[in-house]
């Protein structure tokens, strides 16, 4: 009888809980689930942005076109977008992960609190800058007469050499990686600092008493206990890199060639917005969605371990 009464209260509380969660669930469904489902649905149709005619059902036609082997040689094909996305993700996500961890450890170990705060703000500042401001800064740097050439030539004592930051296909990809790295490193440093702060200092004190040096402390204590944060940051960084768009868009609109940096999201933009093929762009979005799901699952599986308790 008492048990029944208890269950009744629980249900009542759950009902209230559900009511409180409902607005955000509706919001989330409207702005996340609906577009995802709609993109899946649209990907089976030949839908043009301006057409008033009913979209024509093409089954897997849009997907077949994306992966048609005869288009593989076209530098603006979807195959090239897959390549560009993978190169960008690997070239950005690994340095982001490693260097943000190193910087976070360095900042956390600083004894001067003002210096700590200053560095945190400095690293984070680019993340809050608007794309327009970032574009202006980097176009000044990458202009052939800009600071990029001046710095590198000054450093290497090679006056007058144009490093072709936005011209050479390899340099263009490196330039996008540098910009992205600059913009997001601060965000991941803050995440790591938060993770580091949650490790109880008593563990370090015990290790020091036991005679551990700094190197041993980092590899045996900090890194294992930071594993949940490392997994979180690596998943977030990878997903962010796969979704990169504004950096490539900014470079392209300033005159750089498209093919080397034609990542999937940029291809989606060009196909859907500029060329008006909404069905085809939706198929690309679905492929990107599946890629992101699979890579995230893989990452969770490979880094799965016991929970860390202090």
């Amino acid at each position: 009888m008492a048990n029944k009464k208890y269950r009744g209260i629980e249900r009542k509380q759950a009902r209230w809980g559900f009511l409180f969660v409902l607005p955000s669930m509706l919001f989330f469904s409207l702005f996340n689930f609906y577009p995802i489902i709609n993109a899946f649905y649209t990907s089976f149709f030949d839908k043009r942005a301006l057409s008033k005619l009913a979209p024509k059902f093409v089954g897997l036609g849009n997907y077949e076109r994306l992966f048609r082997l005869s288009t593989a040689a076209n530098p603006l094909s979807f195959y090239n977008s897959l390549r560009a996305t993978l190169v960008f993700t690997l070239g950005t996500f690994i340095p982001l992960l490693v260097l943000s961890l190193i910087l976070a450890v360095f900042i956390s170990n600083l004894s001067n609190n003002r210096a700590k705060k200053f560095l945190q703000i400095s690293y984070y500042a680019p993340a809050v800058l608007s794309s327009v401001v970032a574009a202006t800064i980097w176009m000044i740097i990458f202009d052939p007469r800009g600071l990029g050439n001046q710095w590198v030539n000054g450093l290497l004592h090679t006056p007058g050499v144009d490093r072709r930051w936005l011209v050479d296909p390899v340099m263009e990809q490196v330039s996008t990686m540098i910009i992205y790295f600059w913009k997001y490193i601060g965000y991941f440093v803050i995440l790591f600092i938060t993770g580091l702060a949650s490790i109880p200092p008593t563990i370090y004190e015990a290790a020091i008493i036991d005679g551990a040096n700094k190197n041993q402390t980092f590899w045996r204590i900090t890194l294992p206990l930071l594993k949940p944060t490392v997994v979180l940051v690596s998943v977030m960084a990878m997903l962010q890199c796969l979704k990169t768009f504004s950096t490539q868009y900014m470079i392209y609109t300033n005159g750089a060639p498209r093919a080397p940096i034609n990542v999937i999201t940029f291809n989606i933009y060009v196909t859907g917005i500029q060329q008006q093929y909404l069905g085809r762009a939706s198929a690309m979005s679905v492929v990107l969605f599946i890629m992101m799901m699979l890579l995230t699952l893989l990452q969770f599986k490979t880094t799965k371990s016991e929970n860390v308790d202090y």
Partner: peptide
């Protein structure tokens, strides 16, 4: 109707010979 798409392709052709 596809002039902007065609312009993109011409852009790619010209810039690939100029820059790549």
């Amino acid at each position: 109707e596809d002039s902007s798409v065609i312009q993109t392709q011409i852009r790619y052709a010209v810039e690939s010979v100029m820059l790549s």
